[in-house]
Amino acid sequence: MTQNTIKLIKKHPKYQELVITRSRYAWMLSILMLLVYYTFIMTIAFYPDTLATPISEGSVISIGIPIGIAIILFSFLLTGLYVYRANSTYDVLLEELKIDLEKGA
C-alpha cells in the first residue's frame, strides 16, 4: 500500500463512515456484554441470596436459573445482532468503498 493509497482511503467518506459506525457499534455491544456479565458475577460475590429467590411461591426453581440461561441466550443474541448489522450495513459500505477505489475516485 503506497502513502498515496493510504491517504486516499483514509480521506474517503465511506471509509470514515465504515470505521466510525462499526467501531462504535462493536464497542457498544462489547461493553454491554461485559456489563451484563460483571453485574451477574458481582451479584454472586456480594448478594448471592438475591439469586436464590424462588421464581414463584412454592417453587424450588430460583430466579438465578432463568437469569443464567438468559445470559447465555443474550450472548448469542448479541452475536446475531452484530452479524446482522455487519452483513446488511458494513459489508455494503465496504463493497461501495472498494468499487470507488477501483474507479480511482
Binding site: Y37, F40, L78, Y82
Partner: peptide, 13 residues
C-alpha cells in the same frame, strides 16, 4: 457462563 461470554467480544473486536 464465564466460559461463554468471551466469545461475543472476540466477535466484535
Amino acid at each position: 457462563i464465564g466460559f461463554l461470554v468471551g466469545w461475543p467480544i472476540i466477535l466484535f473486536l
